[in-house]
Design a protein around this nucleic acid. Structure first.
Length: 255
DNA sequence: ATGGCCAAGATACTTGGA
């Protein structure tokens, strides 16, 4: 089973990239963030023609998450149950016996902003919810754009990013608390190239200079981590014409 | 030279992203 995540930064602009990527990589489930589409505008037909079913939760202009899959998903959940949040950032479904939860964690904007406080509150609610979900599901995948680089090796220049949003200590601590529930960062199960990132700023020729961050993650419950055979970042998408600023990440599970 | 972005919605700029 192959499960992937990709922040597409507008599915309208990136639809062809997604269709091409599905054809090439054949994931069983692809989780998207920042679709930026209202539900009535979701391109169901184009994705169906590529052999994928869709579950989506969108809004105008901002946010929006979707699940594309070869087989149908069940037990659909939208949003964190105990969090009053109008922003469409969470979507989950069960595929086979695997509980999949796709998240688009708030960016936070700046550590002094209200949006940063919202991010921390959001992450605490996610942690509490995941504690319940892990008790119910042996096989659980929590994946998406976390907007957090967990460790120094996940940042091109840790000194430059010290204390900044996406790398500040409280965010990294919140991420660690989620891991401590019993989740594993699949990327670190394997030997990886140094300076492996999933996001590069559109400015400053950041991709060419590999000035990136690893902020998109696939976290696995213990039962799934044992079966995981690979976790890869597909940097090739960042070289396409009009690329998303994020690259996809995909795990292969031996189930 | 160490930097010059991108998407959406409303207009020739603002907001948000990361």
């Amino acid at each position: 089973m192959k499960i992937a995540t990709w922040n597409v930064n507008s599915l309208k602009v990136r639809l062809q990239h997604v269709l091409d990527w599905l054809a090439l990589n054949q994931p069983d489930v692809l989780c998207l963030q920042e679709t930026k589409l209202q539900d009535e505008n979701f391109p169901i037909e184009e994705i169906a023609a590529a052999g994928y079913q869709t579950i989506y939760s969108g809004q105008k202009t901002y946010n929006g998450v979707a699940l594309l899959s070869k087989q149908p998903g069940f037990e659909i959940v939208s949003g964190i149950p105990d969090l009053d949040d109008a922003q469409k950032r969470v979507l989950g479904a069960v595929y086979g016996d695997v509980r999949v939860i796709c998240v688009y964690v708030p960016n936070g904007q700046h550590v002094t902003s209200e949006k940063y406080q919202y991010k921390l509150k959001w992450l605490a609610a996610l942690r509490d919810w995941m504690r319940d979900m892990l008790a119910k599901h042996q096989k659980l995948v929590l994946l998406g754009d976390f907007n957090i680089a967990p460790e120094e090796c996940d940042v091109h220049d840790p000194k430059l990013w010290e204390g900044q949003v996406l790398f500040s200590v409280p965010e990294r601590e919140a991420f660690r608390e989620v891991l401590e529930l019993g989740l594993t960062d699949s990327f670190r199960l394997f030997e990886q190239a140094e300076k492996s990132f999933t996001w590069w700023d559109y400015r400053m020729m950041a991709f060419r200079r590999n000035m990136g961050l690893r902020i998109d993650h696939i976290l696995l419950s213990g039962d799934l981590a044992k079966t995981c055979t690979a976790c890869v970042i597909d940097k090739a998408t960042r070289r396409l014409e009009r690329p998303s600023d994020h690259a996809p990440v995909m795990v292969e599970l031996g189930i």
